[in-house]
Design a protein around this nucleic acid. Structure first.
Lengths: 336, 336
DNA sequence: CTGAAAGCGCTTACAG
DNA sequence: CTGAAAGCGCTTACAG
């Protein structure tokens, strides 16, 4: 806990110039072994740590990556953040978190603020359909500033932004097909979230499954809704009030599925004997409910690794993979 | 989207010196109205934004606040983060997130890394008992570096660190008393988490409630456990296997309460007819389960406001309130 | 109220 | 392999 010392102090202590200290710090330039040893010792002795702001100013970029998430309170984003932070730390990068709260305006403000801080990169993890100006703003950063921008959960590949996505359409197709076969009766779709990129993808999987069996989509069994528990609860209460009948529900997220299950149980319906339920996302709570929720797992660790790899590729000026698609895995539990 | 322009460009554009531009930027020094207007216009014209790294280097501190959370996947920390980020943004500050994963080693590493970045402040939101070296390291930052450090969820007031805490002991005392009165039978305590500051506080509330009725604590009905859903599930399964009998459960967190409820239901027990359950925290899921969980609410918005106020006080060199205690509010729902 | 100048702590051509 | 010097983009005494 010495007073903040600078590179000059280290240089003096080691009997070299500050340029040399800087060189051993960067590890890039060639420095003789002896010199290096002496500098390293001086750094140790003084407990020296290079000033990030000075380095950033000089290098023209910070060591900070902005992570913009749809809503940190949602399990998906929380677990993603939990894995991304240490992955960045491994690359010597720090994570600046911005919670979008699913607002395009907020995204726009943040993107504007962001210019001034010479970020090292931007990760956008949001399932919302982004507004055109926002996408253009992101694409501009990639092209003009050479700033790596990575999209997670929605594909911005068409705009030249490397993306990491799940094959949600395929996943939902499989689980809906499974429920159609196992339970026969009609399968409702909960949460065709308008304005959500992944919501749209997932709903397409539902359509695929019905189409494969020559079934038509019954609009009364497609429930638009907001995100979250309450939406699931409300939609099911509403459907039951209207006397609709269905044998199973595919929810667009685990949160909605849990809300739906509570509503079914509150009405005295048994899961899965009366109505089967499947979610997608596999949030932590899903495994510890009664009955436990059948769902599709996510792989936040794999996403974090992919992000780290892309960032490394960018550093080495390698071309970045335009899109990385991860498969969901179906987690069969008691609810379906 | 102009090329990054500097203060000099603005100065030239406005026909003044860069010192003057800096002055209108800071808003601190006196500048004539005309000059100010011209500078502002130039800033507009060029879309100028001051370089954060340069400002930080010169001022000796960044505009970045580090938020260290126990585990971002837990509802408490997620909702706290969600509210703190915009509160900081309102003060022109950015949030650097570090996920501790409840590890003292990680905290130590982060605290060490942190030296180099000339932070604007540090917020520690963790319920773990901090290790002595970590507390000393935090206290040292307050004293030597004049860096504001704020503790949330655990009181570090004894170490000169302003703290924001809930009266969890009082809250648990009230709900345990309530269950004792309503259900008569024995109340078990789930989650006396060893090594957790708030875990200890909460358990003390349980002891208070029993003591107030002249009851002794039955050690078989005090279940130590880890955090989270699984712990709640396992503890209850275990207690049931051992043939223990209890009429109600006070859980040390909502997550544990939900895990416990699932375990009870899996064994065919009804809630609250056979066993009543109360949690603490009021995570989003709690309201949308069947039955909905009776719990104690948190007030993340109030915490965020308090943090912002403390940071402002620090900026104005006012003394900071050593401790701010918030009351929980009891949310009576169906589970107890 | 305003400007010229020094300097925050680094990195990186440029010489040698 | 190493050093002296310039400069990244700001802010802030110091004069006037």
């Amino acid at each position: 806990m010495k007073k903040a010392s600078g590179i000059r102090d280290v240089a003096r202590h080691a009997g070299v110039s500050s340029a040399t200290v800087s060189r051993v710090l960067s590890g890039q330039a060639a420095v003789s072994e002896q010199t290096q040893a002496r500098v390293l010792a001086a750094i140790q002795d003084l407990g020296f740590q290079p000033n990030h702001m000075a380095q950033g100013l000089r290098r023209g970029r910070s060591t900070t990556v902005a992570l913009l998430v749809g809503d940190i309170e949602q399990g998906v984003y929380a677990s993603l953040t939990k894995h991304i932070q240490p992955a960045l730390e491994g690359l010597g990068l720090d994570l600046l978190l911005y919670n979008l709260g699913h607002s395009q305006d907020r995204l726009q403000n943040i993107l504007a603020r962001t210019e001034a801080m010479r970020l090292h990169g931007i990760i956008v993890a949001a399932s919302d359909l982004l507004s055109t100006p926002n996408i253009q703003s992101l694409a501009a950063k990639v092209q003009e500033q050479g700033l790596p921008v990575i999209a997670v959960g929605l594909s911005l590949q068409a705009h030249g932004i490397p993306s990491i996505v799940y094959d949600d359409r395929g996943a939902i197709r499989r689980s809906v097909s499974f429920m159609l076969e196992s339970y026969g009766g009609p399968v409702a779709y909960l949460g065709r979230i308008l304005g959500s990129a992944s919501g749209t993808e997932r709903f397409a999987g539902y359509q695929d499954a019905l189409a494969a069996r020559g079934l038509a989509v019954d609009p009364r069994l497609v429930w638009d809704s907001a995100y979250r528990y309450k939406a699931g609860w409300d939609s099911v209460q509403d459907a039951l009030d209207r006397g609709l009948s269905f044998r199973a529900i595919q929810a667009g997220s685990d949160e909605m599925a849990l809300g739906a299950m509570a509503a079914l149980q509150a009405r005295g319906l048994r899961i899965p004997e009366d109505v089967a339920v499947t979610g997608i996302g596999d949030i932590e709570a899903s495994a510890y409910l009664c009955p436990a929720l059948t769902t599709h797992a996510a792989f936040p660790a794999a996403v974090a690794e992919t992000i780290a790899a892309l960032l490394e590729d960018h550093r080495r000026r390698k071309p970045l993979a335009p899109v990385t698609t991860l498969e969901r895995s179906f987690v069969r539990r008691a609810s379906a």
